[in-house]
């Protein structure tokens, strides 16, 4: 598990691009407690970042998601799944939302509550209607070279919500810290 200092270094690193990666509002109030041992012992935190529309930003968000999921006490597989889902959301924001536009930003926020890890990714693009996305599992789409990102996000997270920002899209990804009880 990375230290608080490493996380701070990771998320506050400055970009050399024309629109630098700015850490606008980081509320890094981690109380690590027994993260990874006892989910009922609440570990709460909240941090948000505004980044430029680049693959470098995608990698930073993915790494931050991995650290956040580790600190929330998820097992190794779940940490990997959360990090991938968040990466896919960030790729969507940078690539399909902002189209790498240097004048547009993406935001990423990470909130750990007693019950969940909640990640929100926003872009400033034309907006995304999830109902219009083709089913990547349909026989006519199975050999397509793209279109699996949202599917994987939904596969790996417990809740996924889309909100139109006019302009832009906000994706909210939620992973429950306490597993659902059988039969509920």
């Amino acid at each position: 598990m990375r230290s608080r200092m490493e996380l701070a270094a990771l998320t506050s690193e400055k970009s050399t691009s024309t629109l630098p990666s700015l850490l606008l509002s980081a509320v890094d109030d981690w109380h690590s407690g027994n993260a990874g041992k006892d989910l009922a012992d609440s570990t709460t935190s909240r941090a948000s970042y505004t980044l430029d529309s680049s693959l470098d930003s995608v990698n930073k968000i993915e790494q931050t998601a991995e650290v956040s999921a580790q600190r929330a006490g998820f097992d190794e597989d779940t940490v990997s799944h959360v990090a991938m889902a968040v990466r896919e959301a960030a790729v969507n924001a940078v690539l399909h939302g902002n189209s790498y536009d240097p004048n547009k930003h993406i935001t990423a926020s990470f909130e750990t509550t007693r019950e969940s890890l909640i990640v929100r990714i926003t872009d400033q693009g034309p907006g995304l209607n999830p109902d219009t996305l083709p089913d990547p599992l349909a026989p006519e789409n199975i050999l397509r070279g793209s279109g699996r990102g949202i599917f994987l996000i939904r596969a790996f997270m417990d809740e996924v919500h889309f909100r139109q920002l006019h302009p832009g899209t906000e994706l909210t990804l939620i992973k429950y810290r306490t597993p659902a009880q059988p039969g509920t």
């Binding site: 991938m84 990466r87 896919e88 790729v91 050999l143 397509r144 070279g145 793209s146 279109g147 699996r148 990102g149 599917f151 994987l152």
Partner: peptide, 14 residues
């Protein structure tokens, strides 16, 4: 591998 990588495997296959 991410969804882009999966897509590349599929594209390579076809």
């Amino acid at each position: 591998i991410d969804s882009s990588g999966i897509g590349e495997l599929v594209s390579a296959f076809t």
